[in-house]
Design a protein around this nucleic acid. Structure first.
Length: 429
RNA sequence: GGAGAGGUGGCCGAGUGGUCGAAGGCGCAGCACUGGAAAUGCUGUAUAGGGGCAACUCUAUCGAGGGUUCGAAUCCCUCCCUCUCCGCCA
């Protein structure tokens, strides 16, 4: 959420920055609403002050022995009643205007950071570095082909259980998923992250606090009877972990590594990535999340990205780092580095982690502050996948595939997985 | 699900209609004392929005929302949450 004061005083600044995202808005109506809200609040404050004065006067006079039924008291009471009526009217109006203002503010995306490159969309993103050597041989298989022979997962039967875009893992597939989650969490723990296993059902306030609501309701699964939603990413519950808190400055930065299943409707992606583990309604993810002092957040962004990269490096998975341009930026982000892993079967890079700095955007929505000698201020929040587990498995299978149908497991994962490779002749039962 | 108790400042805890934004304690910060520290003493210490160069001041907030009243932390209603006991359950 953007600062109301800026909306009131210099909305052009906002309009200018939103334009970089490709959003053309006239903020004059919003400015008028904000100013109107403030003017109503001002009137309200003055009336309330008058009402308080009368109330105290009555108390004082009765306390001094004036007969509660004396004319002067009755007159004061009448005056108080008059003010009460006016207060009720203005208060109702102010609430209406304030709610309208908030709703509109909540629907505006974050402003891109100065460093974020301008661009209209995906095609104008900037590659900033690569790591590792991609496998470029011909006839490499895609992960679902590899998995079929090894009987690692089944998507068709999963449609019987749930719907399309769900997966059931079996045997070495299930074990691989489990070992990847443990591996990632241990790696991040060793760097000082606090491990978190949050609720998977989150309420409306949590989704609003991190920016998924009100604009993206159609992307989340909802339990209508309970005001609860299935979390689309651990970013949501972890943000709300400190909602309405003032974090002591010495506790910053707070760094969490949260594992959670993630649920997304993937509305509007019909026909895309219909096979395999790339795009599912339910997938596992280990999410990195920082609450940072505002002055430290730039460095934090570099660090959280490096921490996400370290997983790919440990797993020997080649990748590249993309600096998303303003037109491709997510709603809450002010700048984002995407990590794209190389998928040898598809001969392409695919997003496996998105490392974003949100500035005070989520902190203002969620009211998360810190206090130092200069006063109380909003913290900055950052998030990055570390990593999406299903896509990691896809990359591992395609990268480790051998001509005999087996898959070699990277050394770092062997202690977790318990096998150096996955062999076709392993029993499937 | 049934019965009962309760939700007050960073924490504990007083407050049942009139200078209560809220006693007291703890914690924290500053100052004094000390060679240094402990102990002690003094002072300060919520958040948000408005006005003022500032000192300061106004408004709101005692789980949330509504009501009664000139006036509500205090009375009434609704909801949410927590705890205890019983039932059920992985």
């Amino acid at each position: 959420m953007l600062d109301q004061r800026i909306v009131r005083e210099s909305p052009n600044l906002i309009a200018q920055e939103l334009k970089r995202r490709g959003i053309e808005v006239d903020l004059t109506p919003l400015q008028l609403i904000a100013q109107n809200q403030q003017s109503l609040e001002d009137q309200l404050n003055k009336l309330q002050a008058e009402g308080n004065r009368i109330g105290k006067e009555v108390g004082k006079r009765i306390g001094q022995g004036t007969d509660p039924n004396a004319k002067e008291i009755i007159d004061l009471r009448a005056e108080g009643n008059l003010i009460k009526q006016k207060v009720a009217d203005i208060d109702a109006e102010e609430k209406k205007v304030a709610a309208n203002l908030r709703e509109r503010l909540l629907s505006l995306p974050n402003l891109p950071s100065k460093e974020c490159p301008n661009g209209r969309g995906e095609s104008e993103n900037i590659e900033i570095r690569r790591w590792g050597t991609p496998r470029r041989e011909k006839h490499l298989k895609e992960h679902w082909e590899i998995a079929e022979n090894l009987y690692l997962f089944d998507t068709e039967r999963s449609a019987r259980i749930a719907q399309s875009r769900f997966v059931t893992l079996f045997n070495m597939g299930a074990k691989l998923e489990r070992s990847l989650i443990n591996f990632m969490l241990d790696l991040h723990r060793s760097k000082g992250y606090t491990e978190v296993l949050p609720p998977v059902l989150v309420n409306t306030s949590s989704l609003t606090g991190s920016g998924q609501l009100p604009k993206f309701a159609e992307e989340s699964f909802r339990c209508v009877d309970d005001d609860l939603w299935l979390t689309p990413t651990a970013e949501v519950p972890v943000t709300s972990l400190h909602r309405d808190e003032i974090i002591p400055v010495n506790d910053l930065p707070i760094r969490y590594a949260a594992y959670s299943p993630c649920f997304r409707r993937e509305a509007g992606s019909y026909g895309r990535d219909t096979r395999g583990l790339i795009r599912l309604h339910q997938f596992n993810k280990v999410e990195l999340y920082w609450f940072s002092h505002p002055e430290e957040s730039q460095n934090a962004h570099i660090q959280i990205t490096a921490d996400a990269e370290s997983v790919l490096q440990a797993l020997e998975l080649p990748y590249r780092v993309i600096d998303l341009c303003t037109g491709d930026l997510g709603f809450s982000a002010s700048r984002t580095f995407d990590l794209e892993v190389w998928l040898p079967g598809a001969q392409t890079f695919r997003e496996i982690s998105s490392c974003s700095i949100c500035g005070d955007f989520q902190a203002r929505r969620s009211s998360i502050r810190t206090k130092d000698t200069n006063g109380t201020k909003l913290v900055h929040t950052l998030n990055g996948s570390g990593l999406a587990v299903g896509r990691t498995m896809a990359a591992l299978l395609e990268t480790g595939q051998q001509s005999d149908g087996s898959v070699v497991i990277p050394k770092a994962l062997v202690p977790y997985f318990g096998h150096e490779s996955i062999q076709p002749e392993l029993p499937t039962q």
